[in-house]
């Protein structure tokens, strides 16, 4: 008998898991998870995530609301759906991660101090909303200068060679940003989406 007796003060709190089950799309399937790890092992950017999907699910079960909602996992997901396709229990992993991200945004967990790529998301969304397309140059510049003037110049110079190479290879155009036709329709779509989101 050398091991210390564990502290029993912490109770197992299922209330967050129950809430996720009822309020997050696909959350009702989360209890099927058998913690096999295929989702996290399959994730092409799993190395960039703090927890990954499998551990996130376990943390939800363990009631770790703050840790889950402020995790980078929710924001680094690229929605490639590999986890969902491969899940041996057919759990819609991607939907649950996206759903948790929406909750995090709503509950104020997604501010710049807590989300590593907050600035990038902002720059990306600005371009998509303004032009209906992502303009690599503008997204990148806006992202770099989000960190301040000095940092912006430093990062821009560091990437100058890549930018010139892309222009030379015809992978990045010079001139006015491309836009979509009928931007008013995009505006209406975005307004409708915002309205639906408000309704929940």
């Amino acid at each position: 008998m050398t091991a210390a007796i564990p502290e029993s003060s912490r109770t197992y709190d299922l209330s967050f898991a129950r809430w996720v089950r009822e309020n997050v799309k696909g959350g009702d399937k989360m209890n099927l998870c058998m913690q096999c790890g295929v989702c996290a092992g399959s994730c092409p950017i799993g190395g960039e995530m703090d927890n990954g999907p499998r551990k996130t699910f376990m943390m939800v079960r363990a009631g770790m609301k703050d840790e889950v909602l402020s995790s980078t996992t929710l924001w680094n997901c690229t929605s490639c759906y590999r986890c969902y396709v491969r899940c041996p229990r057919g759990i819609p992993v991607t939907s649950i991660i996206q759903g948790l991200a929406a909750v995090a945004a709503k509950e104020g967990y997604a501010d710049k101090e807590k989300v590593a790529n907050y600035y990038f998301s902002r720059a990306f969304w600005w371009s998509a909303r303004t032009f209906g397309k992502t303009d690599e140059r503008l997204v990148t510049m806006k992202y770099f200068f989000s960190f301040g003037l000095a940092e912006g110049i430093k990062r821009s110079l560091a990437n100058l060679k890549i930018a010139l190479g892309m222009i030379k290879a015809g992978r990045m155009h010079v001139g006015m940003p491309h836009t979509i036709r009928n931007k008013s329709q995009l505006k209406a779509i975005v307004a409708k989406a915002a309205e639906l989101e408000q309704k929940g």
Binding site: C36, G37, A40, G52
Partner: peptide, 25 residues
């Protein structure tokens, strides 16, 4: 403790097993 996500033949011809160890992530 892990269900491997992928197994593939590497450039050196050996089979590689890839995934997430679920005890320590």
């Amino acid at each position: 403790k892990s269900k491997p996500a992928e197994i593939h033949a590497g450039a050196d011809g050996r089979p590689y097993v890839k995934g997430e160890r679920t005890i320590d992530r």
